[in-house]
Amino acid sequence: MTKTTEKTGETLSLADQVACEVREDIIGGRLLPGMALVEAELTGRYNASRNTVREALHQLGHEGLATYVRNKGVMVRRLGVPEVRDLFLVRRTLEVQAILGSKPLREYESDRMLDAIEAAELAREREDWQAFGTHSLRFHQHIIGLLRSPLLDAFFTNIAAQMRLVFAVAPDEENFQRPWLERDRQIHDLLADGRRHDAAEAMTRYLDDSEHALLDLFNHPPRS
């Protein structure tokens, strides 16, 4: 059995499909840094053979989402300061360019962004900060969607998954996640008004502030 991607029509192998599902579980906050990725458990979770799961884990290792730890096996990767800096370098390059190079916002593009914002608002009302972070990442995936490149969409899905692993360093998800919602909405509204340069400046400030907040958490971890 194979799966076809919605955007490209490309047929995914079983290993690709399992890797995609693991990636989505990371973005959704269901798999956290340091969690063991046990083949026997994953075969049941993803309804796949051990060989397929092994191949998927190998792929995720190349993507920087999984790592082999001696005497422990394959685990969800823990990221550090160098990875945070690199992730934000990539995000500035792609997200700001996506905004500056975008055409007038189409209705479906606006709707996707607003759906992510509204889902984040509902998560905030439920005080479900894990879901809140996921919906914020979805918003930024839709920003990359402005480039209308399936290759970049796929690449940024991996970036989003790595960002979710970085979020795990925050001891208090509410305090970390809460400030970003209104800034997401501001960026959408500027784009909807055709103010691309203002939106790009808002995105640059957003990413700068987000990076500084995360680096501060890595460099000054809270005492237990």
Rank of each mutant, 00 (worst) to 15 (best):
D111H: 01
R112Q: 01
D111A: 09
P104Y: 01
G101E: 09
S110Q: 09
V81W: 13
L100W: 14
S102Y: 07
L89E: 08
G80Y: 06
D86E: 10
G80S: 06
V81G: 11
V96E: 15
G80F: 06
S110K: 14
S102G: 02
V96A: 14
L114S: 08
S102W: 04
K72R: 15
L114K: 12
V96S: 15
A98T: 03
E109C: 00
G101L: 04
S102R: 05
R77T: 14
L105I: 00
K103F: 08
G73A: 02
R106G: 11
V81H: 11
S102T: 02
Y108S: 11
T93F: 02
K103Y: 06
L100P: 14
L94G: 07
E107M: 08
E118F: 13
R92A: 13
F88I: 01
F88A: 00
E118W: 12
R106Y: 02
K72F: 09
E95M: 15
L94N: 05
P104I: 03
L114R: 13
L79T: 04
M113L: 04
V76F: 10
D115E: 15
R77G: 07
L79I: 05
L87C: 13
R77C: 06
R77S: 11
R85K: 12
V84M: 06
V74P: 06
M75Q: 12
M113D: 01
T93W: 03
F88M: 01
D115L: 14
M113Y: 00
I117V: 15
V84T: 10
D86N: 14
R78K: 14
M113F: 01
Y108G: 05
L105W: 00
R112F: 03
Q97M: 10
E83P: 02
R85N: 09
E118M: 12
R85G: 07
S102P: 07
R106P: 04
R112I: 00
G80L: 07
G101D: 08
S110E: 05
E107P: 07
R91D: 00
A98F: 05
V74C: 09
R106I: 07
M113H: 01
R91S: 07
